[in-house]
Design a binder for these strands. Sequence first.
DNA 1: AATGAATGAGTCTTCATTCAT
DNA 2: GATGAATGAAGACTCATTCAT
Lengths: 204, 204, 204, 204
Amino acid sequence: MTTLDRRERERASRRQEILNAAKMLFAQKDFHEATLDDIAEAAELSKGTIYLYFKNKDDLFFSLMENHIIGLIELMRETLQKYGDIDTLILKVIETHLGYFEKNNDIFKIIHTERGRFEVNIKNEFRKKMINKFLGYIDLLEKVIEDNRGSGFFKDYDSKSIVLALIGMINSFTTQWIMGGQRGSLKTKSGMIYDIFLHGTKKQ
Amino acid sequence: MTTLDRRERERASRRQEILNAAKMLFAQKDFHEATLDDIAEAAELSKGTIYLYFKNKDDLFFSLMENHIIGLIELMRETLQKYGDIDTLILKVIETHLGYFEKNNDIFKIIHTERGRFEVNIKNEFRKKMINKFLGYIDLLEKVIEDNRGSGFFKDYDSKSIVLALIGMINSFTTQWIMGGQRGSLKTKSGMIYDIFLHGTKKQ
Amino acid sequence: MTTLDRRERERASRRQEILNAAKMLFAQKDFHEATLDDIAEAAELSKGTIYLYFKNKDDLFFSLMENHIIGLIELMRETLQKYGDIDTLILKVIETHLGYFEKNNDIFKIIHTERGRFEVNIKNEFRKKMINKFLGYIDLLEKVIEDNRGSGFFKDYDSKSIVLALIGMINSFTTQWIMGGQRGSLKTKSGMIYDIFLHGTKKQ
Amino acid sequence: MTTLDRRERERASRRQEILNAAKMLFAQKDFHEATLDDIAEAAELSKGTIYLYFKNKDDLFFSLMENHIIGLIELMRETLQKYGDIDTLILKVIETHLGYFEKNNDIFKIIHTERGRFEVNIKNEFRKKMINKFLGYIDLLEKVIEDNRGSGFFKDYDSKSIVLALIGMINSFTTQWIMGGQRGSLKTKSGMIYDIFLHGTKKQ
DNA sequence: AATGAATGAGTCTTCATTCAT
DNA sequence: GATGAATGAAGACTCATTCAT
């Protein structure tokens, strides 16, 4: 079935092209301002074709997001398996997170622009699915804290709060880096974040 | 000029009614989904009237934001003048910020939903003005750090980074509180944020 | 409230203009082929304006139909009150029906073109409402038969069947007249229909 | 030429499959609402293949109709040859017509739904062809009347009118039967229609 | 012959903005 | 100043038709 395979591959690659075009546009304009005409033009496809690959604009948008959240979660999972020492682990978590968005800064822009939309107003199914993916990521990090509770490493705040503190800082620096025009490497901030977080949350 | 005064006052109050209606709707929907029809109806005014008070939808939106950022800055200024001791000051800064958004959670929702729009993609004038207001707030806090550098209180990271770390954490908890349905008082988080921030950024 | 009255009247007349334009176009093309652009242009209005008077295309279409069915029922009611003698009554019923569609032949075209659509496939609410209006008309005529049953005038077939026979013939001739280009007066057929129906359904 | 024959036969059967799928769908939806995608799926064929058998959607639709009108005409011709006595003949004509649509009620639904389209607004060639087929059927029945004029059986109305009266009644009952959900046999109405028509059109 | 991916014109509908009253 | 009717540009989505494989 080589023909079928090829067709399958072509379909997948076409889908990817659309997602790439969409990524570019959603990073520039916001959801409502990026039109399907724009996206089709950027993908060098006709508008109708997009509907062969995605049910509608929402589907396209959330597929894009989902893919990337999944990608980030995968990457983070790998990191978590590689390092045992909690100290190192935290640094690596920060680096992985920053690294991912340094590389995929378009996606960060989109998440940053649209996140509020599905966090605050959960109306439709797509958004609900989306937010669950996000929460999955938080959960993953929460477990890291939880698993290292015994070591007496962290203060007695609940794990979710500890994770929120970390994520909050990371996002803050990422935003800053994006707003400043992505100058230099975002990863250079890892050390500082690590330091502040570590001393901030460590049992004295 | 009592007549003029009254006219002036009436005009201002009308304007405020529109802003209130807009606040309610932008907190529920998102910029593009909240229509001027909605807002006019909520303000119990005709759509055309809105254009007598605001140049267009963008102007209405950014006036709303601007008012509140100014309000927050005012409030923060007062706080800063009241407390001299850096230790106490930091706690009070956190409390003031959390307190403001606990009270004005509609505005936080809007900022949270729309922030990305003017932070990441600065296209039009309104947005540029907006972002400057935000930066003004950051500057204000930066100065607090700067003014207490001599005391050897803070680590040698640049002041902006220290502020970003703090703001990032605060936002993270505020988002969490909003998403969780504003249960309890947001201010209860002040202590924890203070603790983490303080130990995280303090010179050992 | 003369101003309100005038506004009311203007609104009603505008609505009527739209209905007239719609009538013209639905008589020429079918529901799907007559576009809102066409209708707006014929009404010398912008497309958006139509939506100030009708919820959507379906609403416009069914309002048009409803108005006319109601009009026909009204007219028929008046006829029924004027004549007591069953013999005359039947002739007048036929004349009224033919007269109505001779005058409103656009509407007959539309009903004839679209009737099947809501008779056979009753999906949406509008269509359900529509068909009920039609059935109301049939009911009205059934009652005429029923009320004259005692006189031993009609054969013992159920009233609905008797009415269906009559309506069937009337429609057949109206269609023929329309297809033939509305030449001459449709009402000239009354006598023949009356004759065939009367002798066909009369008790021997 | 056995190969050619087989190919011929296969082609014909494929064509028929498409027509059957189309019949099913046009009976459910209406010309514009039944899409070629639907039809292709129902026929278990690719959309493109339909275009190898039919010029376009109109062609498919009218071929379907044409086939059936031809079928009805054939059937009626056979009936007409079997019975000599005008009395019996009329009953048999009614039974044949009702029988055909009882069996092919999908087709009746379609004709009922779409008839207006080609009867009232004759625009394109397909439709013109269609209407001529219909008129051919009327002509056939007209000839029956004409051929029995000598016998002094029918009133002196023109034959077309007499046929229209008959067809009108038949259609009226068929519609009723379809709308009522095809309960019982439509043919049971033959007697009544025959009775009303006979006495209605018979010379006294 | 058969496929089904691609097309793009065409449709309904929405909504910020204007303007006569 | 206030109104709200009218506008029309713009957007998401559909679907008959074509064509390379």
